[in-house]
Structure formats: C-alpha cells, structure tokens
C-alpha cells in the first residue's frame, strides 16, 4: 500500500473519530446510550460515504465496506438458515431430545416420514464434499430443479398464459353509438371514449406485434418483419417509460441517504 493512501486512510479515520466524539457530545443529555448511538450514526455515515466513494474509483474504503457487508450478510444468512429452518422448523418435528438441547418447543406427533425427506436430500447435497461420492448430490439437485420447474409450469401457464389471453379481450369500439355521437361527445380525458379506444387498440396491436417479434422459427421478413419491427418499437417505448419510472424511485432512495447524512449525522435541520 502506498504511503499517500495510508496517510489518507489515517486522516479519514481520525476525522470520523472526531465526528463520533462531536456527535456524542451533541447527544449527551438527550439520550441515555448517547455514546453507542453516536457511534452507530457516525459508522453508518462512514459506510455510506465509503460505498459512494466507488463513484470515484475502487479504493480501500470501498473495499472495507464491501467486505464488511459481504461478511456480515453471509454470516447472517448462514445463521438464519440454521436457526430458523433447521432448529426452528425441523428439529421440533424430529426429536424431543434435540429440541430440549436447542431450547425450542417440541411439537409432539406421530412419526412422519415427510419431515425426513428434506433431511435426506440435504445430506445427499453435502455428499459434494466427498471426492468419490460427490455424484450423489445430483439427486438432490435433480429433485429441486425438476419438482419446482414442474410446479412453475402450471403456475406460469395459468398466470402468464391463460389469464393474459383473456386480458386482451377488450372492446375496440368502446361504448360505440355511431360516428355522430362519437364526434359530438369527443372527450380527451383518461376515461373518455376516445382515450379508452386508443388504449384498447394499443393493447391489441401491441400484444399482437410483440408476440410476432418473439417468433423464433420464422425469419422476420416482409409483412411479418414489419409487424415484428412494430413489436420491438412497442417494447422499447414500454422500456423507456419503465426506465424513467424506476429512475425516479432510485432518486428517492438517494434523497433518503442524503437526508440521513445531512440531518441524522451532520445535524442540519432539513
């Protein structure tokens, strides 16, 4: 590590230590555990700025925040998996002695083989650790992928296929009472006849051309190609709208972080 980097790191550390002290002094008298609270706020601000420093380039502060985040979250999920799934759900159904050992409430009941199935599959999965019997773990993988893919097939067919078909059954001439009536009552509001008709025509043409774009066993040439091109235009306009909408959401997240830095950490009244 370069000498300059070390100096900057030491400087930033001192700066944050000072910030901790100042924050603690500011909170003194207002909160009981003001030293702990001040540390948490200062450390949160430090980690926020460390992650944001990635915008400049990769640096030791980002590395520190990254490794801390990865380490803590991996450990958290590991312990959650063990304590909530194995200890919390499985052991109370399998063994009274183990339930007592782990201090969880034992659920009495008759012997039920289905609780042993995940145990067996889990143990088979651990066979990967063996050089000679690692292939056995494929049985568990096949079970996981096969069963859930089969279950999802029905679910998707219902929600993404049948229901989507019926959702496109829309009237193209909404509340049609003749050309004269249509022009004499022309209304440009969202619930007006013209806009509703435009929306339904967009659904019809957009869905149809979109499906045509996703035909893979036919070349996209001629009339078919033109319909496909229209389909990709519809998709791109939709993506553009979605992009703008999501960016707005991200901006609000950024505002939340900046509010934290300025109000909670630096104490500005915003």
């Amino acid at each position: 590590m370069k000498k300059t980097t070390l100096i900057i790191m030491a400087g930033v550390t001192v700066l944050f230590l000072l910030s901790w002290i100042i924050k603690a002094l500011a909170l003194e008298g207002m909160q009981e555990d003001y030293i702990k609270k001040a540390f948490l706020v200062t450390f949160s601000a430090f980690l926020t700025l460390s992650i944001l420093s990635f915008l400049y380039r990769d640096n030791p502060f980002y590395k520190f925040a990254e490794h801390l985040f990865v380490g803590v979250s991996a450990a958290f999920w590991m312990s959650m998996g063990f304590w909530s799934t194995i200890v919390g759900n499985l052991i109370p159904r399998l063994s009274q002695n183990l339930s007592v050992f782990f201090k969880v409430h034992y659920i009495p009941g008759d012997f039920n083989f289905r609780f042993y199935i995940p145990v067996i599959l889990g143990l088979l999965l651990l066979m990967r650790l063996s050089r000679n019997y690692g292939w056995i773990s494929r049985w568990s993988l096949a079970f996981i992928v096969g069963t859930t893919a089969g279950l999802n097939f029905i679910r998707y067919l219902r929600s993404d296929f049948i229901k989507q078909i019926s959702a496109t059954f829309v009237p193209l001439l909404v509340d049609w009472q003749g050309t004269g009536h249509f022009f004499s009552n022309l209304d440009l509001s969202a619930s007006g006849q013209l806009v509703m008709m435009l929306a339904n025509w967009t659904i019809f043409l957009g869905v149809m051309s979109g499906i045509i774009y996703f035909f893979f066993s036919k070349e996209h040439t001629g009339m078919f190609g033109r319909a496909s091109r229209f389909g990709i235009w519809v998709l791109m306009i939709t993506f553009g709208a979605s992009f703008g909408y999501t960016v707005m959401g991200r901006i609000s997240l950024l505002v939340g972080r900046i509010t934290f830095l300025f109000r909670d950490w630096l104490g500005f009244n915003i």
Binding site: R158, I162, V170, F215
Partner: peptide, 28 residues
Amino acid sequence: KAAVIVLMILGLLAINVHLNAFIEIFKV
C-alpha cells in the same frame, strides 16, 4: 404463440359482439 394470436382475434370479435360464452372459456 400462433394459437394465442388466433384466440386473441376470436376473443376480440366475441367481446365486440357480446358472445360471453367464448370469453368464459378462459376464466381461470
């Protein structure tokens, strides 16, 4: 997908001529 396009057109015709029996087929 080709079947979807055909069903879509039939569904549109059905809803525009108020042929509800056809639309009910797709009710899940």
